[in-house]
């Protein structure tokens, strides 16, 4: 897994490639916490490079979104190609990613 954080005035971009499962969950949580602590009003996620995800990653996403929204901040998900592994697993587990993130999805 590869995580990159790029900060710019007003927002923070978190790019994640590779596997994002239970084995990577500590590392991912740490990266998410850094993003939260940055204080950036907008945290953007670029996840199209993910090759595998599981329920723990989706739970981390939900938790990050909750933390940001409670602080009056936003999470934006960069567009994902149709049939992307994240959308597939979210569908399978009944986690409504679109409901949580679609309104804040960035345009391409």
């Amino acid at each position: 897994m590869n995580i990159q954080i790029a900060e710019s005035p007003g927002d923070l971009l978190l790019s994640i490639d590779g596997r994002a499962g239970i084995d990577e969950s500590d590392e991912l949580a740490s990266a998410f916490r850094k993003a939260l602590e940055s204080g950036a009003p907008l945290v953007r996620l670029a996840l199209s490079g993910l090759s595998a995800v599981d329920v723990s990653f989706l739970q981390l996403l939900l938790s990050l979104e909750l933390s940001l929204s409670r602080g009056g901040r936003s999470l934006a998900l960069r567009p994902l190609p149709a049939g992307h592994v994240l959308l597939q697993v979210a569908d399978l587990l009944g986690i409504n990613v679109k409901r949580l993130l679609a309104s804040k999805t960035e345009s391409a």
């Binding site: 723990s56 938790s63 399978l92």
Partner: peptide, 20 residues
């Protein structure tokens, strides 16, 4: 039809990432 009930998911500060 599967619906995940996510209301118990805590904020990041309280989340132990490997627990459901």
């Amino acid at each position: 039809h599967v619906t995940a009930v996510t209301e118990a998911v805590p904020e990041l500060g309280e989340l132990e990432p490997s627990l459901l």
